[in-house]
Simulated assay, not measured.
Amino acid sequence: MKTRALKHPFFVIIGPSGSGKTKVAEAVFPKEYKVISHTTRPQRVNEKQGIDYYFETQEHFDQLIRSKALAEFDTYNGYNYGVGIDELIMKTTAHPAYDVLTIQGFQAIEQLFKPLVIPIFLEVSKENMLARLQERGEAPTIIEERSALYEQEARNKEIIKHYPTHFIVDANQPFSSVVKDVKEVVNNTLKNHFS
């Protein structure tokens, strides 16, 4: 199956828990630039179908995998998550798009759509990560889980460095500075892409 090409860059925000990935991404990009993922996770009270996620039954998610409709998919906390190829192509038709993904998700999509898949890694210290999770009011068991995953997630920075176009942003700075740095990365990339 021939995968169609992206017309504009797709920015993938990656980083350890507590690096602020989702909040930073939402502050940098307009809402309509977000690539909506599919998930089998139950819908939460404040979430909307087709805005936060495409909430799927396990059967339908399996069908998406079988029909090769997903650019990447993964299991997290016992639920499936995946990014649809059609969604990616549609979202990048008129402007760039973004999503917050795992390193594996980025790598799978980069394989299909390079060179327009741009990773932005948010680097955060373990101390700051733990402090932010506590501020967020996360349960001690979650903080412990994320703490155990920290080394592995932080090592993803070394993987990112092997990609010709990659960016590493210091997420230990105040939130506004992180947003400013990521905006700069996005604007410079777009300028270079269309110059």
Rank of each mutant, 00 (worst) to 15 (best):
M1N: 12
L6W: 05
V12R: 05
K31Y: 09
E32M: 04
R41C: 02
P42D: 15
K48I: 07
Y53A: 15
F55C: 11
E56T: 03
Q58R: 14
E59R: 14
H60I: 05
F61S: 05
D62P: 00
D62L: 08
Q63I: 01
L64M: 12
I65D: 12
R66P: 00
S67N: 12
L70A: 06
Y79C: 06
G82D: 06
E87D: 10
M90W: 12
K91C: 04
K91H: 07
H95D: 06
V100I: 00
I103F: 08
F106G: 00
A108Q: 09
I109M: 11
F113G: 00
V117Q: 02
V117K: 03
I118P: 06
I120R: 06
V124G: 09
K126C: 06
N128Y: 09
N128D: 13
L130T: 02
A131T: 05
R132N: 12
Q134I: 00
Q134R: 13
R136S: 13
E138H: 10
P140K: 11
I142F: 07
E145I: 00
R146L: 07
A148Q: 12
N156C: 07
N156M: 08
I159N: 15
K161T: 07
K161Q: 14
H166T: 03
D170F: 07
D170L: 04
N172A: 08
K180M: 11
V182K: 13
E184T: 03
E184L: 07
V185Y: 08
K191T: 01
F194Q: 09
